[in-house]
């Protein structure tokens, strides 16, 4: 499904990813852990195609396609989803309108008919309930005035509606209380169907108590330095990242 080979990438003039390799097969959940500045968020931005995140060398293939050859929206239409660490507020565009437009853009790319407003409302209400957000959040401006936890749940709602083949969750646990954390985890678990894959990027092990990963990777200074099963996350929780011997403040 996803093959990342020897990925080097930079943000502005600074090289952040320095030879990252990762293979994700259908249905797998991979956790990427690491200290601040290791390049965790950069990976998601490079994959989704954010301006300013530049590929230096290496390759990213999603379902056999070279991701770097595609526009941001095309990557999304090919099944890539990034749940943002800091979701963007868009006053004036309602959540409903935003999500309907994006669901229909995906459908169009797949050659399917657009959903009518009534059809969409039905699925949106379901998804809204699933992430435990009041229905009036559909009417509000995208993320406008949402709390940190509400924004994260809104991301998960979008993921549920868009049904990506690969979802990257960029610190979807940061700033969440335990109840919100469970909502996010349940949202992810409800989408695990043996085909859909996930990359869960997190600083802490906590989220992984609720989303059990198949693999855990430790990212440090732009490279995966250790991989293992769920037990690796527990190890990190016990020992921290000090064993990496790297200062935490390096990089973005």
């Amino acid at each position: 499904m996803l093959t990342i080979k020897d990925l080097h990438a930079r943000v502005e003039e600074k090289t952040i990813l320095k030879g990252l390799n990762l293979t994700v097969n259908p249905g797998e959940v991979h956790a990427i852990m690491g200290p601040n500045g290791a390049g965790k968020s950069t990976l998601g931005y490079v994959m989704s195609g954010r301006d300013g995140y530049e590929l230096e060398s290496g390759s990213i293939e999603l379902n056999g396609e070279d991701l770097m050859e595609l526009d941001v929206e095309e990557r999304a239409q090919k099944g890539l989803f990034l749940a943002f660490q800091y979701p963007v507020e868009i006053p004036g565009v309602s959540n409903m309108e935003f999500m309907k437009e994006s669901v229909n853009a995906m459908r169009k790319a797949r050659g399917e008919e657009a959903l009518t407003a009534a059809e969409f409302l039905k699925v949106a209400k379901e998804a809204c309930k699933q992430v435990n957000l009041p229905l009036d959040f559909l009417k509000r401006g995208v993320n406008e005035g949402f709390s940190g936890g509400e924004k994260k749940r809104n991301e998960i709602m979008q993921m549920i509606l868009l049904q990506p083949s690969l979802a990257i969750l960029d610190e979807s646990d940061s700033g969440l209380d335990i109840d919100a954390l469970k909502v996010v985890a349940n949202g992810v678990n409800s989408q695990r169907d043996g085909k859909r894959s996930f990359i869960v990027v997190t600083h802490y092990q906590r989220l992984l108590d609720f989303i059990e990963p198949d693999f855990v990777h430790i990212l440090s200074d732009g490279k995966i330095v250790k991989s293992g099963g769920p037990e690796l996350a527990k190890e990190v929780e016990a020992t921290g990242y000090a064993w990496l011997g790297k200062p935490e403040e390096a990089g973005a």
Partner: peptide, 16 residues
């Protein structure tokens, strides 16, 4: 135009 908002929308499959 807010570039961050534009990127966010495009990352959800909405064309530019």
């Amino acid at each position: 135009i807010d570039d961050k908002a534009l990127y966010y929308m495009r990352s959800r499959g909405i064309d530019r």
